[in-house]
Nucleic acid binder design. Sequence first.
DNA 1: ATATTATACTACCTAATTGGTAGGAATACA
DNA 2: TGTATTCCTACCAATTAGGTAGTATAATAT
Lengths: 130, 130
Amino acid sequence: MRIGTRGRYALTIMFYLGSNYDSKRYISLKEISDNEGISFKYLEKIMVDLNKDNYLDVLRGNNGGYRLKKDPKEYSIGEILRRVEGDLSPVDCINSGCTREKKCKSYPFFEGLNKEINKFVDSKNLADYL
Amino acid sequence: MRIGTRGRYALTIMFYLGSNYDSKRYISLKEISDNEGISFKYLEKIMVDLNKDNYLDVLRGNNGGYRLKKDPKEYSIGEILRRVEGDLSPVDCINSGCTREKKCKSYPFFEGLNKEINKFVDSKNLADYL
DNA sequence: ATATTATACTACCTAATTGGTAGGAATACA
DNA sequence: TGTATTCCTACCAATTAGGTAGTATAATAT
């Protein structure tokens, strides 16, 4: 689970929306792109995954954009990262059915590490860092 | 810090050496390669990093190979992984001087995650899983 | 209506990284 | 001196990361 630009930018977007939660206005990707210095087109692409299953409120057209549906404290960092980066496990063998699992001495270690990572990211939410 | 085959194979090697610590015999990469079904040539390459600074005892030639220098409990998993995978931080911005660090809301989160990961891997050693 | 400002969708592209392979030189020992 | 081993250097193919580009669709202001 190396976290790349997708995960980092997704958090940037979510913190930006979180900071504007009270105003209830829709924020365009253009605004975020300009203020954070991130490629607009790349943000659009990340948004495809980030906004699956109507994770956010969307409005197209003039003065449109995105805004949080729920209070920032309802958005866990773990879920945000998982949406755009996929599974967060530190090695492939976890969650992809390793056949050597039984005799593998590393496996229990990786399971422990995986648990620790997920526990941490799921225990934090947007409000914790606003 | 996605852990790839380098890190996994390094642990496989170290656990193998750890299992044979009491016998004091030198273990060849050929033996590990055969028993674990891993490419011999790839193991050789991983060994270059793993054995930097005389981390292990080495003997060339017939009946040669590698063996642990110290008790398995003296080898932390964190150090092993770091040797072959480099720095274990989950994002580039940690340890590479992010300029936006001051205003970045994600940064404190990543610092926390990084700390958690390193604490875990450094608290475990080979003997814990033998 | 229609111009403007957004998101939504699809396709493409380049550089770096991952996960190897190959071959020979140096060394230790039987 | 032959054999088994590590050491060193170079190469390589497939995948992933990190984008760019263009067009369709939708909402709103005028």
